[in-house]
Design a binder for these strands. Sequence first.
RNA 1: CGGAGCGUAGCGCAGUCUGGUAGCGCACCUGCUUCGGGAGCAGGGGGUCGGAGGUUCGAAUCCUCUCGCUCCGACCA
Length: 445
Amino acid sequence: MRLSRYFLPVLKENPAEAQIVSHRYMLRAGMVKQQAAGIYSWLPLGLRVLRRIEEIVNQEQERAGHIPLLMPTLQPADLWRESGRYDDYGQEMLRIKDRQDREMLYGPTNEEMITDIFRAHVNSYKDLPLTLYHIQWKFRDEMRPRFGVMRGREFLMKDGYNFDVDRDAALHAYNRHMVSYLRTYERMGLTAIPMRAASGPIGGDNTHEFLVLAQTGESEVFYDDRVTALKLGQRDIDYDDRAQVADVCKEFTTLYARTDETHEAAVFDQVPEAHRKVGRGIEVGQIFYFGTKYSEAMGAEVVTKDGTKVPVEMGSHGIGVSRLLGAIIEASHDDKGIIWPEGVTPFPVGIVNLKQGDSATDAACEGLYKALAAKGLEALYDDRDERAGAKFATMDLIGLPWRITVGPRGLANGVVELTSRRTGESEEMSAEAAVAKVAEIYAGV
RNA sequence: CGGAGCGUAGCGCAGUCUGGUAGCGCACCUGCUUCGGGAGCAGGGGGUCGGAGGUUCGAAUCCUCUCGCUCCGACCA
């Protein structure tokens, strides 16, 4: 993408309403525009990151054997009357009437609707296990939306639902989700710690939240800091292997890690003092096992091997996709701007032409741009007629992890400069070597 | 939902107390100079002062109502 033809409305000054760093940078980098309290337009740069995050979520869900579908944002009230939640959900649910005066709602979650789909089409244990998920906009009419996309009223969420024949199978689904979530967050450059949680209006007694440590987090967290060193890495996981998946969950949930909702001081005190940490975290996902709560209420049953009918065992699992943008920025930025992890960056690399209009630098930049594209890497090429300082400031603000700087001084020696946004370190090399190095960096992402 | 505050140009703000017909910086447009970390000079365009009603010779400014947004608290992906 050539910046001169892109739509990237960056702001030099901090918008007054933005209190936390991710909100400030998202506005300043031209990623979002607020349209109402807790409701945002996604501008091109923000949309690119949102799509990247969705893509990673999709890939990891499908890798775990979960199946995508898409349910609507608007739902009929009657479905929610069956579970009893139409009345229970309260003011947070946005209720709407259509022209026939039918009661509708903008979905805050989809347990009822997925159960309706299930009961309409599945009758036998032979069709299980089954996990369906979608990534769809949700609306929760929060009392107090704040922190930009971190607590919006409209937000993009991945929500998945598992259907299993018995409790053991459902708990395996729970574990499978935990592992797939760990891998998802790691690919986004995040350390998200599973913490035992309270269940809230979804219901159920087995639930973990995934927390990203950050000063600006809304939850107080208590943890053994050795959990932050745990990494899934590239290990090979067979998601159908119950024992292997359970072992991974055990590895990641044995050390103490709780939110204030489930914190137990007496247990926490047994953590060695050197590792005992209290901090704050951003909740970026939650998984639940809730058994037959919805299937019983809504008559979602399957016939078992011995011919009896049983309500299907269920769980649900959510990742706050739009919230993740904020969480990643909170976890990865400096005083100049965002620092995107390679996994989610809107563009893999930026090209800065220090002397636009100079035939040598222009030609070198065009060559780089095309060579990168040939490797499947779409660079953001700053071809504006701006001074070097302005170009650097823009690149730093929008946070592309790698920058190739092309100027007449370097070209005279046959080199360009490859700079890491994270470390600030620069290395001079030929244009060919820079392309090769960037390609190598992204080969593993 | 309780408490506090703010709406004046695209963004950040001053002007409101003490009414006199709207200003600064950034951004934008033109020209010249400049050109490896958000340039300088000169010129220029842009605002029914959130909305409605009222008081007044006269309202951004005073009064009433209303809408929107932000922050602090209790709730949540």
